[in-house]
Design a binder for these strands. Structure first.
Lengths: 339, 339
DNA sequence: AATATTTACGAAAAGCTTTTCGTAAAATGT
DNA sequence: ACATTTTACGAAAAGCTTTTCGTAAATATT
């Protein structure tokens, strides 16, 4: 079964290709009678225009590209979910790529997407990304670009982020208000802006509450995974058990590593040590004790990101000029048993 | 910044478009001198061929489509992860769509993908999908199709599945060997083949071990989510507490609903009631008690699925004929504290 | 030196759609 | 009845690449 073309319809009806095309697009200079004949035949042959030809002509692919560091991730899969749903509504297709936190791969993927002729790109940067030439290329090509979550400020484009400093500040303030004073921070890697920001929020909250920042309470979890949480909790407890009354971690997965270590050691949460996470992973509501966390509203972030992208795409189509925006997504403290 | 075309290169060098094209593709009928000139210029202008034109001509898009019921799902996101990695290696792009378990949407998405001219389609069916005309259309169009995980046997194409009957049989046999006899089953919906198969495995294991099947021990969880597990556990305990010594659930999420209800009611797991899940979600290893489950090896499933798809795509390119295959992925029992 | 072969390139078509522009024929106006 | 407008269609170009085929010039052969 081959795809029907305009040419075939034209030949069957004995009219020209242009008339067929115009009939299907409801041009005014085709008679009602001809239109009906064309439309009926097109339907019965299941005609649909060849998208390659359409894209070649229009330079539009009705496709956007999305690059994320990793797919197997509660937070990102929720963002993607929202992106897919919005694109579905708008009739856009979505090409998804994973950078695996690898800068070189990210670069290559950007190239592939540009080549592919996507109408826009959404990207959450790899931790290893410092150089932004590849992003500049996107802009120079005139392709709308929106950074989300893991962003850089070094480039002119739209951004959708959460206020990590503020969210982190709120977490630590909450802990302090609850009476915790020796609050360890299991921070993420040194490069990603959101990791830096969460750390800054942590420091600022201590400062504003008259608690001295103590760098010996900061543990590095560059991969922000479960094992790093578990291992650093072990390190901390063996060294500093009675000197710490709360552990706040870069992400829930890490915090759950902490919880499980503490549970194993029969250290009571939150009586002896409170634990706080970040991102509100689903599992945080089902582990024991349930983990307090920060809801980042990834669905909202996804929607807003793709919303900005479409806004820019549509502006350009109309030839209007477009003002880059930065949207900050509200976060919520989710207080559970661990704090 | 505009994309360079062959024509531009040709004009600059004062040669024909065909020669430029052939030079870049290393045709033998272009002199070494001309090739060098062309390649150098192409590089310095960052030339890359227009994929729309290439696809129009070759009828190949170097893109495949993937339809899954839902993205926010540990199992599916792992499958996708593997698919993306394999496609990355092969230089293929991946368009991902979510059917949201909606048959109509699935139909529409198949149409969109066919229209888009993808080179192949991977799909895991929506629970509501019974009619397979849309899948037949894919075959009729000559587009390679591979069903994975949630499949139908009503169509001729390649398939990658796990042996749900066997896996489920093993779970129940394990429980029986451990001395459990009144084993409730929280089954999934009535349509999906894997839901049916797991149920059949459950029944078969009971039978083979001389335990009478008791339909009052079967609870329906059509959405296989947390709440259904929790709610049905409540129903079961209120009705049948002393009549059940194990609960086996269609998926970990549901099993965790069960665990949390039992924990709340201070019913000891596994002493009073054992719990067994399916799919080995990450969180199963971190909840309390840790949940026994079935590892489905989604990464392997993803790899094999896309592997079969490429095999078919390549066969067709070479004009060879292709034998549909069905690959069964091995599962592993993961025994933890809950059983 | 005349013929056969190889080398190196270009013209052109095909892949399909969209849109502009031109033009007969029909309809309207005077 | 003639001029003008409208209607309804078609030709053709553009979008870009790839590949087949043709051919002039250069080289090799006898």
């Amino acid at each position: 079964m081959k795809k029907t073309t305009l040419k075939e319809i034209a030949e069957i009806l004995g009219i020209s290709i242009s008339t067929v095309s115009k009939a299907l697009k409801d041009y005014p200079d085709v008679s009602a009678k001809t239109k009906k004949k064309v439309i009926d035949l097109a339907n019965s042959l299941h005609f649909s225009p060849n998208t390659f030809a359409q894209s070649l002509r229009s330079r539009e692919s009705k496709t956007i590209g999305v690059i994320i560091p990793s797919m197997v991730h509660y937070y990102f899969s929720n963002i993607l979910d929202a992106i897919l749903k919005e694109c579905e509504k708008k009739g856009y297709m979505v090409i998804i790529m994973q950078s695996n936190e690898d800068y070189e791969l990210e670069r290559k993927q950007i190239s592939l997407l540009l080549n592919k002729g996507v109408d826009g790109i959404l990207i959450s940067l790899a931790n290893s990304t410092k150089d932004i030439k590849h992003l500049q290329r996107v802009i120079d090509y005139g392709i709308p670009l929106v950074l989300f979550d893991k962003i850089t400020k070094l480039i002119k484009c739209s951004r959708v982020i959460i206020n990590d400093i503020r969210a982190s500040y709120d977490v630590v303030t909450h802990l302090i208000n609850k009476g915790y004073e020796r609050i360890a921070y299991f921070r993420g890697g040194l490069n990603p802006q959101n990791s830096i920001d969460r750390f800054l929020g942590y420091k600022k909250a201590l400062e504003d509450n008259g608690i001295a920042y103590d760098s010996s309470l900061v543990y590095l979890c560059p991969n922000a995974n479960y094992d790093e949480g578990y291992a650093n909790a072990k390190k901390l407890i063996e060294k500093d058990k009675f000197n710490v009354d709360a552990i706040y971690a870069i992400t829930d997965l890490t915090a759950i590593g902490v919880i499980n270590y503490l549970n194993e050691k029969r250290i009571k949460i939150p009586e002896e040590i409170a634990v706080f996470g970040f991102s509100n992973w689903f599992m945080s509501s089902v582990i024991s004790p349930t983990l307090s966390s920060v809801e980042q509203n990834p669905q909202n972030l996804g929607e807003k990101s793709v919303g900005l992208l479409f806004k820019e795409i549509e502006s350009r189509q109309k030839g209007e000029d477009f003002k880059y925006e930065t949207i900050t997504i509200d976060t919520d403290l989710i207080l559970r048993k661990s704090s």
